[in-house]
């Protein structure tokens, strides 16, 4: 039975690789080093290069999307990591027992909100606040760069962080909760305070799960599409120059550029998007496997069941 999913995965990968071959032949290594994503003029006569057909003046490089993905994901982790640890400590140490369950359920409910709703909130609420209240203040305290729009790295990073906090918190909080009672009482019995229990038992003893949970959150942030598409600014052919810059991610670019790729008769636009998807799948797979390997199945059980 276990062979069936393996076979399906193999078929999926073979399909992706097969579809990406024209793009690999056309772009070669520059796919990874160029930041220009030019769909080309699909109405002009196509050109032939390395035995494949491509639209006139087309060229495909993932660098701007790759950089955007790293920056927004990194920004999200930077926010989500301390917040998740704070929430986990709060749930495990300072929340009365009768509120623990509702509190955890609330955190998990946030994980179930469709990403388009986060995106909507980002566009309507977050972007204006960033543009009019937060960015001018940041500039005042010394951040460099040109403020263009509320959309961009900050909006995308913040929305992503809000989306992954429930996942990261669930893993960390669960592993803190599963720390043996004897250890916590051991610290209390020596005259330790709640903070010392949190520091030595809940934090000190769950480092692996904290790293693993964060990696799982990273995996989610890497693949998140809809919300990022709405608030990143989805800029193309520009590398970010400051914290205020607009950006774009690999997943959002695939979603945004797919329909016009169908109008390219040479199929090269589609092939390049598939190659982009292939790279994204590989990155996500590595991050997720790493996260799972570190956390171990036991610590994940509570959150997977919910």
């Amino acid at each position: 039975m276990a062979l069936v999913p393996m076979a399906i995965m193999l078929i999926l990968f073979s399909f992706l690789i097969y579809k990406a071959i024209p793009s690999m032949r056309y772009t070669g290594f520059s796919f990874f080093t160029s930041y220009l994503w030019y769909p080309g003029n699909v109405y002009a006569n196509p050109i032939s290069f390395h035995g494949v057909m491509a639209p006139y003046r087309s060229s495909f490089g993932l660098l701007s999307f790759f950089v955007g993905t790293l920056i927004t994901t990194g920004f999200a982790i930077l926010i989500a990591f301390p917040v998740s640890i704070f929430l986990s400590l709060t749930i495990n140490l300072y929340t009365p027992d009768r509120l623990k369950r509702p509190f955890s359920v609330l955190v998990e409910l946030f994980a179930g909100i469709p990403s388009v709703v986060y995106g909507l909130w980002g566009v309507i609420v977050l972007e204006p606040v960033l543009l009019h209240n937060i960015m001018p203040w940041m500039k005042y305290v010394g951040f460099q760069g040109q403020i263009i729009s509320g959309a961009g790295i900050m909006a995308a990073g913040l929305i992503l962080s809000i989306m992954i906090i429930p996942i990261v918190t669930a893993v960390i909080s669960e592993s803190m909760h599963s720390q043996p009672r004897e250890l916590k009482e051991g610290v209390y019995a020596l005259g330790g305070t709640k903070w010392e229990v949190g520091k030595h038992v809940l934090l000190g003893n769950t480092r692996k799960q904290i790293v693993g949970g964060t990696l799982l959150g990273t995996g989610r942030a890497l693949g998140e599409t809809m919300a990022v598409l709405m608030v990143s600014g989805s800029i193309v052919n520009v590398l970010p120059t400051s914290i205020f810059s607009l950006t774009n991610t690999m997943s959002a670019q695939i979603a945004a550029a797919l329909d016009s790729a169908f109008i390219d008769g040479t199929g090269m636009n589609l092939s390049a998007l598939v190659e982009l998807g292939l790279v994204l799948v590989l990155i996500s797979l590595i991050v997720n496997l790493a996260g799972r390997a570190i956390v171990g199945r036991g610590a994940l059980r509570g959150f997977e069941n919910d």
Partner: peptide, 13 residues
Amino acid sequence: IGLVFQKPNPFPA
């Protein structure tokens, strides 16, 4: 007033 528990509970250190 110190306490030693039923199950040995050394810290993982």
